[in-house]
Amino acid sequence: MTAWHLDPEAIRLYAQGAAPPQLAASAEAHLMKCAACRDGISAHVDTRRVEAIWQEVADRVDAPRRSWPERMLVRLGVGEATARLVAATPTLRGPWLLAVAGVLALAAWAAQFDERFLQMFLVVAPLGPLAGVAVAFAGGLDPTREIGLAAPYSGLRLLLIRTAAVLAVTVPIVAVAGLALPGSNWLAAAWLLPTAGLTCAALALTARVTPVVAVGVVAMSWVLVTAPTALAGHLHLAVGIGAQLFWLAVAIGGSLWLAITRHTVTIKLGRSA
């Protein structure tokens, strides 16, 4: 027991969190030792505020700190729930990104030696991001696919979120590889619109087949059309101005179609649903 006690005004200020720092410190020290003043303080404390503080503390303690990609996304303005969904995308794990980067680096390196390889780079470039989208939904790679399929979360939304995340990471990789191409000509960027068009076409196809099959179909068609064209020296037919406009139209058409049918079409995220 101590001889002095906090006066009622000090107790009120402290309880409401309005005490100046000096007073708060000495009040705190006293409250640790004095049961009488602790009883006195409880009458003043706003229980809702205490509850809120307690909740916040509990949340900090066992909702663990987010991993750095999640923190970065949240800082960029992405919702914390969406950031968690992105963090669970299989493609965004090291090995897959390294594979994409590796193939493109190889293509860019080969292009140094031969004009034809330069053209092959354009054929290969869209395949990187497309493969990333396929990997994001490959059943064997997403260990929680079944749980996700049985959950009410919109399949289309998940598809778009993961695709956007994959593109945000893979497109810069392709761009860097493109910069390594010899000469600084328009070819270095000519893969962008085809990539957008092919991705949108694949997304639209998921109303009929799974993302992996959709990407497979789209990628195969692209290679079958552009590879022979490139080898025959007519690459401009596949990536020239006319082709660019075509891919722009495909991208816009695909997105519009998805937007219009989003409530009526079932997206096939898995082989079975």
Partner: peptide, 20 residues
Amino acid sequence: AGFHRGFTVFEFIDYVAILK
């Protein structure tokens, strides 16, 4: 049932809760 093995228990269940 598989899991995202890099997630903590809390993070993983939280992830499914988001899907729900």
